[in-house]
Design a protein around this nucleic acid. Sequence first.
DNA 1: TTATGTTATAATCATAGTGTTAATAAGAGA
DNA 2: TCTCTTATTAACACTATGATTATAACATAA
Lengths: 270, 270
Amino acid sequence: MKKYKIKDDNDLKECEKLSISTDILIFSVSDEIQSNYRKLNKKHFSVLLAKRDTYPFEGKWCLPGGFVKPGEDIEDAARRILVDKTNIHDIYLEQLYTYGEVNRDPRMRVVSTSYMALIDKNRLNDKISNNLSWFNIAVTEDEKTINVTLDNNNEEIKFKIAKTLKEKTTDRYKYKILENDKLAFDHPLIIVSGISRLKNKLEYTDIVFNMMPKYFTLSELQQVYEVILGKKLLDPAFRRIIANKVEKTNEMRTGGGHRPSILYKYKTTN
Amino acid sequence: MKKYKIKDDNDLKECEKLSISTDILIFSVSDEIQSNYRKLNKKHFSVLLAKRDTYPFEGKWCLPGGFVKPGEDIEDAARRILVDKTNIHDIYLEQLYTYGEVNRDPRMRVVSTSYMALIDKNRLNDKISNNLSWFNIAVTEDEKTINVTLDNNNEEIKFKIAKTLKEKTTDRYKYKILENDKLAFDHPLIIVSGISRLKNKLEYTDIVFNMMPKYFTLSELQQVYEVILGKKLLDPAFRRIIANKVEKTNEMRTGGGHRPSILYKYKTTN
DNA sequence: TTATGTTATAATCATAGTGTTAATAAGAGA
DNA sequence: TCTCTTATTAACACTATGATTATAACATAA
């Protein structure tokens, strides 16, 4: 048996060309005032991207990430990068998927583990560095392709992914990049599968509350679901589903020109 | 910005000590005749383990796995190992999680990506090599710990895992090995989190059918669910849930000393 | 041949959950 | 005071689920 045994010298010789990196999908939902005439603030689902200023893919956008240092755990590296970008320590962070294709980086073999971070954008207060930018996410999908448009109110990034259902042999979907001009590496794949994971997890976990402020109205919470899932939900149905996850407070949010809404908070003791 | 840029020579010097490996959780469910008196064949949920015969952890059991070769995709490596162990090509294979702790292997830094493979054990026909063995899985769990017993009718492997709920900061559970004598590396963690993923996926995917023969009775299918989830299900409820996933055939299974059961097959065109 | 054991399968009913529509509540501003 | 707007709840039909019970059909033994 040759398990866990380096088979020949070639293995060791080639080793020096290998690195581990991590790429982080930092997702958030934010209000954006659409018009001053009537304060119509619409929520957006968004992801944080960085503009590359070095080889390779110089000038293209990419996910915040970096190499895992020698002696550093992968998750520690992800958190280091996350703190570096946001200056916030207690951010929800979850490992998603590891990308091990041989030629995904032109410099050398780089195996990258992607993480998903969820944050309430209000906590940032524009503390992000100047090469970083939030892009609003718009996804349209049919049986075979996924079209994604990312928009930071200044630049638009569009890409297209082919989706094939690989039955019995691998994960539910196998993605392949069809069109992509502005994103570096295989990051379109990482973004698409990350969005898909988040959507799924919304339904069977309490993951949303990591993107919410401590106090929120049920309408706000519903809008967060709607903007991530990309579809409208019916009020009473939604309220019943999350009823036992939240707790009423005595506070109200007034000033909207309509009936005030009760502020709720996440009920942790469940 | 230092993203994707090797920071100093130290990075490269240390690189040569890094390797990528993959460990595969090969799960199956099998009949085992418990008694000859009355043909009471009970199903078991089981995982395939290999006995190590080299340093490190010589003599201990581990998951089938191995190093990813230079120039080989991680998933290709997983499939290569899977085919090597089973001689079957079209086995369901799904990436689970990447273990990146610095000292998980005493030889050098080894980052391991775990995969889950699901197989109908009948397809193997005892084709497995002699250092491999199927272990039946028994899990008991309370709020804080998970106890696992693996049994191959010859040897018993027991281990205990602490389960902490790390709120807001990482995946739902953080596992830590409390007791473990007979398993190599951090494989108790890989096994426990793999079982947990399989249990979850049973509920919201059609993943089970990868462990089933082409034709099966509803009782057999139900037993597979029961033995993996570790609890009894009610017949009518179960039948309603899987009703639209399966398709009746004209065949029956007779010979059980009772009413014969209709054979079903998985309805792929959904 | 008939009775009995055993499991397969369906019928039944109560209860819980969900989708949908519509009604009511209450602040802001005219 | 009236109107606009959104928040919140009520009400109803419908669907899904949990649980119990009834019936079907084969194998085996009397």
